[in-house]
Design a protein around this nucleic acid. Sequence first.
DNA 1: TTTTCGACTATTTTACCAATATAGTCGAAA
DNA 2: TTTCGACTATATTGGTAAAATAGTCGAAAA
Lengths: 204, 204
Amino acid sequence: MDEKLTRDKVDGIVHAAQRRFASFGYSKVTMDEIAEDVGMAKASLYYYFPTKEAIFRSVVQYEQQEFLTQANGVLQQKSAADLKLLEYVRLRLKLTQRLNNLSHFHQQGWHEIKPIFNDLFATFVEHEIRCVLHILQEGKKTGEFQLEHPQKTASMILHVLQGLRMRFLRGEDQQAGNEPDRLLFEQETLHFTSTVLHGICKCK
Amino acid sequence: MDEKLTRDKVDGIVHAAQRRFASFGYSKVTMDEIAEDVGMAKASLYYYFPTKEAIFRSVVQYEQQEFLTQANGVLQQKSAADLKLLEYVRLRLKLTQRLNNLSHFHQQGWHEIKPIFNDLFATFVEHEIRCVLHILQEGKKTGEFQLEHPQKTASMILHVLQGLRMRFLRGEDQQAGNEPDRLLFEQETLHFTSTVLHGICKCK
DNA sequence: TTTTCGACTATTTTACCAATATAGTCGAAA
DNA sequence: TTTCGACTATATTGGTAAAATAGTCGAAAA
């Protein structure tokens, strides 16, 4: 019973923090504000989390876990490999959009949080590579795909996805969802994906 | 005759500046230093260039022009379209490497120079799109390529190229050519290019 | 025993100002 | 026409005090 209550408290904190971070970015949120949102004194937060960074990490982890759950759902489903890849990328676009807000990545936001969740990010990327690799190898096995270095191709795809994201993060005045740019980013990402799938050369 | 001498002076300044910028980055180079390198007093520089930024722009423009010249050479040559694209990308990798040093893009370097040559960059991208589009349409005409939206594909390719560059610029301690990362970046870029060319799906 | 919090400390960020450094100007001289 | 020494204006830096905020601790509430 204790467990349950504690988990509720933790979840409440993470949720409150998530909303604050999404609105104002990591550095512009104070522990006092989070505490007030959740109806506690600041000191009480430190009963559940050792540092502010730990809270932020939990927020990110929460998003990543949810994504991986959904991604595994896509991997399990019985559809063609190319559709799976597309679906995976679409899912990833959603995650990207959510994470983008967490610390106002544009301007300097990225540098202030990079050290905080560098490791989180690294292990997440490994999970991602495993997902994409799984799709590629499955497609290869069923004869749908033809490729020589699935490992390298998987990491290339993910690097491009990250790169495109960064490329479109550069516009400075994009606060809370610059629609035209976001749309262009998503179109381009999907266009990349289908181009990788089908190539542009005629003969094979 | 006057013309010739003036051009020599201008070239000397641009060259000296180029070397300084490549070693120390835009903000860490003073007009006095450039002047000394070229054997003039600082005030004399202002006879040839209105501002420091103008010098920097000239340096960038010089690199870009040289690249475009070589790129046009590639476009003219009589080879298959896929090879042309690969060659274009290889050329572009070289340009990238040169520009990367000009203002220590990593850390904050990028922000300080962005406004300076935003417009230069914009028109350069247009040239690039024209180049890639040219290759794509030529390939389409000869029946080598099969693609529906050459325009969109061209801009996608260039966005990915920019994105990959940014993706690999992130490592913080990469002063003056972190070899392993640079190599990975170039491999990945070329892998992307050939994947776009041939796709990974078996059937067409 | 577990959880909360008020009051406290330590550390970081901000605000400000003087000192320095550097971009850019100007008129005279080569 | 071109160069430069001496000048001004502007931006950067260094240092410091004030303010904000992360994080601690022991006592009280549950």
